[in-house]
Design a protein around this nucleic acid. Structure first.
Length: 740
DNA sequence: CTCACGCTCTTTTTT
DNA sequence: AGAGCGTGAG
């Protein structure tokens, strides 16, 4: 078999450029995955590189899995041995083996966003701050934001990056947060990367060992790497210099997560001898689709100018449908899907519905269910985020890491065994007084009244027995068997069975599903210990969780545009294209924010192979009340001749929503699209009770000045610049301000 | 201590 | 509209 077969000239070049730094600028649909997999195959087959000497980093575990199986298709089971992971799971791999050198014991627990929020809530209460006024989620995102910054890794003063707020000091909370993480033997997602960088810096022996192990590096989606990820690449590849990065600055959509597009833009500066290969031939989408996509992305000022060459036929024009409301939108999408399916003999698999926010999925689900069309929602609530699964995971976490106080507080009275808040507080105090762990106090028993102390004894017993069992996995006990045992022991199943409600039955089913997924896991990871298992599933995303066994093979796919990256579908519905939703309000303050939303829109459209439908609704319920919505500015950026326009649902009562007044066109399908009034592009003069330059006091952020007022009615948005430095936008309706 | 009801606040995107 | 949380009765 010839590995270069079916590759174009530049693709072949990229496969053959095996040694030294290489930058592959891969436009949407240009066969990027193909190049990566073939390049790996070539390294192994033709250059004799052992598969385990290749480290390939992808964006999600699912992408890693798919890439692995494509390599196996190319070169057989040898492909199994390629080290293919995400940055986060690669970091876990490294830290498990070498972390103890910098004081990270191998059994660490990984705290996800919800664990972080619980921990922060704890800290706020300790500091006599009200978690209702100061949202833990907001603090968590600030902390995460600061941890993504380069300064934190370059010895900068972290505290100076954390503002003091009106009523509290963020750096105080940050400090406490880090202390508590360390005390709990836990790392958050940012720490996984930061600690890995620290390890590679502080332990030359470790770095040397890893450089000996891996000699070829391939990093996918390089435009979405943050500073720590950039450093990890840099250090690991500094000996072999065989670093190949692949990406597209037009598809950079994670800057809010610390991704820095400069990593890819500056690659040639970092590696002066780098080869650069551009993949600009698009084999995925029709000319019509690419024309729409490129008309939008061209509006971005901050981008490397480039064009995709279309290699497929003309295709069908993109369709823009304006619906009366979100129900009309869903109805239009589902109706179109059904008729297309029959007319073109398509399968459910061929369709994808994209939206900006997870909350939008519900209405599409309802309409699809009504029509008996099987679908799958990618993203949203992770399987492992369900209460019952989190509870059991907390048991497992606590058993392997009794310092994990967040898990302890979750399970000590779950299921209810008579240990209330007062008792928990007592245990905490006593542990503090005796300078021992909370588990140390619990283990000893004797606390409170009869009922309470019985509860504590029960709990201590469950944990002790489980702790004795855990080390037997995997040698003389199977992982699934162990977890099953813990679930029984905890009394969780008994209490659910006792309840016998619809809800508890579904929880039991989920627990069964969980056990099933562990059976599957242990099949592929026969050597995995309990803590390894927990660490790995902490990093799993929605895209690779157990799916219900009765899920039909062919389903329509629903997901956010972010989740759609890297995928392709014959027919794509890109929905909710409205001002404030897509582009999202929270990104609309800055030019950079809008540009990222525009890239997101570009990513959405370029997923489509044959057909793309763009939809917006004139009215949409937000927080339970109806709002008028203008079509997204992105729709304005598409030349009208590229779009076939239509409407759905009654239009009579609505004011004019045509975002592009000068175009004045309507399609043959357009039943009631005639507009009498000249539409206004900007909402009417605001009816805010405030005025620009008004000085105000915000309960959370302190004093500030109103710098901008937009929208009207319930949609009035106030942009406020605070004395503390930052500025922020609020919906007037939801924001109690005091004039000063 | 537990459970039920009603009030509040929410929604950006995810490893 | 829905989830999470606090309040108050048992």
């Amino acid at each position: 078999m010839n590995i270069l077969e079916n590759l174009n000239e530049n693709q072949s070049k990229a496969v053959l450029a095996t040694d030294g730094p290489l930058l592959i600028l891969a436009g949407a649909g240009s066969g990027k995955t193909r190049v990566i997999t073939h390049r790996i195959a070539y390294l192994i087959r033709e250059k004799g590189v052992p598969p385990f000497a290749i480290m390939a980093v992808t964006f999600t575990n699912k992408a890693a899995g798919e890439m692995r199986s494509r390599i196996i298709d190319l070169i057989g089971p040898l492909g199994e041995q390629v080290f293919m992971k995400t940055f986060h799971s690669a970091s876990v791999y490294i830290l498990r083996r070498y972390g103890n050198i910098i004081g990270v014991p191998s059994g660490f627990t990984i705290y996800d966003q919800r664990d972080q929020e619980m921990l922060i809530k704890d800290i706020l209460i300790e500091k006599n701050l009200d978690p209702k006024k100061i949202r833990p989620a907001m603090i968590a995102s600030k902390i995460s934001e600061v941890k993504d910054r380069a300064e934190i890794l370059e010895g900068g003063d972290v505290n100076s990056l954390l503002p003091d707020y009106y009523s509290f000091s963020l750096s105080d909370i940050y400090e406490q947060y880090q202390l508590r993480l360390t005390a709990s033997n836990a790392l958050d997602f940012n720490d996984l990367l930061i600690k890995t960088v620290e390890l590679l810096r502080k332990s030359p022996e470790t770095l040397a060992a890893l450089q000996k192990k891996w000699r070829y590096f391939m990093i996918d989606e390089y435009q979405d790497t943050n500073y720590s990820q950039y450093l990890i690449c840099k250090y690991l590849a500094s000996a072999s210099r065989n670093l190949c990065v692949v990406g597209d600055d037009d598809q950079s959509i994670y800057s809010w997560r610390g991704a820095d597009v400069r990593n890819i833009l500056n690659f040639e500066k970092d590696y002066s001898d780098a080869r650069v290969i551009t993949l600009g031939d698009n084999y995925r989408s029709t000319i019509q689709i690419l024309a729409v996509a490129s008309s939008i992305i061209q509006m971005n000022k901050f981008r490397k100018e480039k064009m995709l060459n279309a290699f497929r036929g003309e295709g069908e024009p993109a369709v823009w449908c304006q619906a009366n409301n979100e129900y009309g939108e869903a109805e239009y999408v589902v109706n179109t899907l059904i008729s297309l399916k029959h007319r073109e003999a398509l399968k459910n698999d061929d369709f994808a519905i994209f939206y900006r926010t997870n909350a939008q999925s519900r209405i599409f689900e309802e309409h699809l269910r009504r029509e008996n069309i099987p679908y799958r929602v990618v993203g949203g609530l992770r399987f492992y985020d369900r209460k019952e699964i989190r509870d059991i995971l907390a048991y497992l976490r606590f058993i392997t890491n009794p310092s994990d106080t967040i898990s302890l507080s979750r399970i000590i009275n779950t299921p209810a065994r008579g240990i209330g808040a007062v008792t928990v507080e007592k245990i905490k105090d006593q542990a503090y007084q005796e300078q021992t762990s909370e588990w140390g106090i619990i283990r000893r028993g004797q606390q409170g009244n009869k009922k309470t102390s019985a509860g504590i004894r029960t709990f201590a017993d469950i944990i002790t027995r489980s702790m004795e069992m855990a080390p037997r996995v995997p040698t003389d006990m199977k992982l699934a068997e162990f977890v099953q045992e813990v679930i029984e022991l905890s009394g969780y199943t008994a209490s659910l069975k006792n309840d016998n409600s619809l809800e508890s039955r579904s929880r039991l089913e989920n627990l069964d599903e969980f056990i099933n997924s562990i059976f599957e896991y242990q099949e592929f990871n026969p050597d995995a210990t309990v803590d390894q298992f927990i660490q790995e599933i902490s990093l799993l995303t929605t895209t690779e969780q157990p799916e219900p066994e009765d899920l039909p093979l062919e389903t329509v796919t629903l997901m956010t545009v972010h989740n759609a990256k890297g995928l392709e579908f014959p027919v794509v519905f890109l929905t909710g294209l409205e001002e404030g939703l897509f582009p999202h309000v929270n990104s609309s303050d800055s030019e950079e924010g809008i540009e990222e939303e525009r890239r997101l829109c570009y990513v959405g459209i370029t997923r489509a192979q044959d057909r793309v439908y763009l939809t917006n609704a004139h009215q949409r319920r937000v927080y339970g009340n109806t709002q008028d919505k203008l079509p997204s500015c992105f729709l304005n950026e598409i030349p009208p001749e590229l779009l076939k326009t239509t409407t759905h649902g009654p239009q009579e009562n609505s004011i004019s929503y045509n975002a592009a007044p000068t175009w004045g066109r309507s399609s043959s399908h357009d039943k009631s699209a005639t507009r009498e009034h000249a539409p206004s592009l900007k909402p009417a003069v605001s009816d805010s009770q405030y005025s620009v330059n008004q000085r105000i006091m915000h309960p959370r952020y302190g004093t500030g000045k109103i710098v901008e007022i937009q929208g009207k009615g319930d949609n009035v948005k106030l942009t406020i610049r605070f004395s503390s430095g930052g500025s922020k936008s609020f919906l007037e309706k939801h924001t109690p301000l005091e004039r000063i």
